[in-house]
C-alpha cells in the first residue's frame, strides 16, 4: 500500500482492521481531501486514537496495570517484611522449594502428554469419519463429558477410582491386585491428566470433525482406488490434509491443560499424594490462601505468566507458519 506511507501507522492498522471497500474509499477519492477545513482534518487525525481509546484504556487499566502491580509485588516480602523490597528473594525461595519444582515438572509432563491428548480425539474422529458401525451414536456420546463441570467429573472419578471403588473391584474379580489410583504418587498425576483428557476431548473431536468436512473426498477415493490400506490412507492422505486442524487442536489443548486443571486437581487429589500432583496454579492458590504468602504467590504467578508467554509465542509462530502454507 504505497498510499498513506506518510501517515501514522496506527491509522493504517485501524483502517485495515475495519477492512472492506468502505474503509479504503476515502483514500481513493483523495482528491476531495484538501477542500476540507483544518479542523475537520484534525478531528479525522485523532479519530482513530479516540476510537481505540476505550479498548486500550480498559486493557491498560484492568490488565496491564494489575499485571505490573503483581510483578512489582513479587519483589516484596510477606508477613513482617510486608511492603519491603526483597529483590529476588521470593524467586530464590520458589526454586529452592521442592514442591514448586514438582509443580513445574508436572507442567513439563503435561507438555509431554500433549500428543496423546491430541491423538485420542484425532483417532476417534477418524473412525467416525470413516463411518465405523454406530458412528452416529459415538459422535454424541464422545461429546457428552465436555458439558460436565470439572467438579462433577472429579467427584465421579473419585468414586470410581477409590481404593474400595468399582474399578478395583473389577480388577479384583480378574485377579489383579488393587491399585491406589489416587493415592500412589507415581500413578495419581496420570489419572488426573487421563480424566482431564476424557472430560475435554469432545471439544477437540468436534474441531477434528469440522476439519474432516473440508477434506477432499476425491483424494480419499483416489487412494482407495490405488489400493492403499487404512493405515496408509490415514498417514499419507488424512494427516497431511488436516495439518492446520491438528495444529489448532494442539494449541487449544495445551491452553486447556495449563489453565483449567485446577478444578479437577482440587477435587481429585488436592495436590497430593505427597505433593505429586501440584501444578503452578494450585501452588499459587495454596500460598496465597492457606499459607498467607501473597508476595510469594505473586512470584509464582509471574513465573507461570512467563511460561504462558513462551507457550503463547510458540503458538503464534505455529499459527503464522501454518497460515503461510496456504
Amino acid at each position: 500500500m504505497p498510499i498513506g506511507n506518510t501517515q501514522p501507522s496506527v491509522r493504517l492498522a485501524s483502517a485495515g482492521r475495519a477492512g472492506g471497500p468502505a474503509a479504503t474509499s476515502p483514500a481513493r477519492r483523495g482528491g476531495t481531501r484538501p477542500r476540507r477545513t483544518r479542523g475537520g482534518l484534525g478531528a479525522e487525525r485523532y479519530a482513530p486514537y479516540i476510537l481505540i481509546a476505550p479498548a486500550v484504556l480498559i486493557i491498560v487499566a484492568l490488565r496491564l496495570y494489575p499485571l505490573i502491580l503483581g510483578v512489582n509485588f513479587s519483589f516484596t516480602g510477606d508477613g513482617d517484611q510486608n511492603g519491603e523490597a526483597v529483590g529476588f528473594g521470593n524467586y530464590q525461595e520458589l526454586f529452592a522449594d521442592p514442591l514448586f519444582r514438582t509443580a513445574l515438572g508436572n507442567v513439563g509432563l503435561l507438555v509431554l502428554l500433549l500428543p496423546v491428548a491430541v491423538a485420542i480425539p484425532g483417532l476417534l474422529a477418524t473412525f467416525i469419519f470413516l463411518r465405523v458401525p454406530g458412528h452416529r451414536f459415538y459422535r454424541s456420546v464422545y461429546f457428552f463429558p465436555a458439558v460436565l463441570s470439572p467438579v462433577i467429573v472429579g467427584a465421579i472419578f473419585n468414586l470410581l477410582l477409590a481404593f474400595d471403588g468399582p474399578l478395583n473391584a473389577v480388577l479384583g474379580s480378574i485377579g489383579v491386585g488393587p491399585v491406589d489410583w489416587l493415592g500412589d504418587p507415581d500413578v495419581a498425576m496420570f489419572m488426573v491428566v487421563g480424566v482431564h483428557i476424557w472430560a475435554t476431548f469432545g471439544m477437540a473431536l468436534v474441531v477434528f470433525l469440522a476439519g474432516f468436512a473440508t477434506l477432499d473426498a476425491a483424494l480419499l477415493d483416489a487412494a482407495r482406488v490405488d489400493g492403499a490400506s487404512l493405515r496408509q490412507v490415514v498417514w499419507h492422505v488424512i494427516i497431511p490434509s488436516l495439518a492446520r486442524t491438528i495444529q489448532f487442536v494442539f494449541v487449544t489443548t495445551m491452553i486447556g491443560m495449563l489453565t483449567s486443571m485446577f478444578g479437577l486437581l482440587f477435587v481429585m487429589t488436592s495436590g497430593g499424594p505427597e505433593g505429586s500432583t501440584y501444578l503452578p496454579e494450585y501452588y499459587i492458590w495454596i500460598q496465597q490462601g492457606q499459607m498467607n504468602r501473597p508476595a510469594l504467590a505473586s512470584a509464582a504467578s509471574t513465573i507461570l505468566f512467563a511460561i504462558m508467554l513462551v507457550v503463547g509465542m510458540l503458538q503464534i509462530k505455529l499459527l503464522e507458519r501454518s497460515g503461510k502454507v496456504d
Binding site: F163, P178, D180, W181, G183, D184, A188, G272, E274
Partner: peptide, 11 residues
C-alpha cells in the same frame, strides 16, 4: 501393620 483402613492416602 495394616491397622488403618485401606487406601488412606487417597481417602
Amino acid at each position: 501393620k495394616k491397622m488403618n483402613t485401606d487406601g488412606a492416602n487417597s481417602t
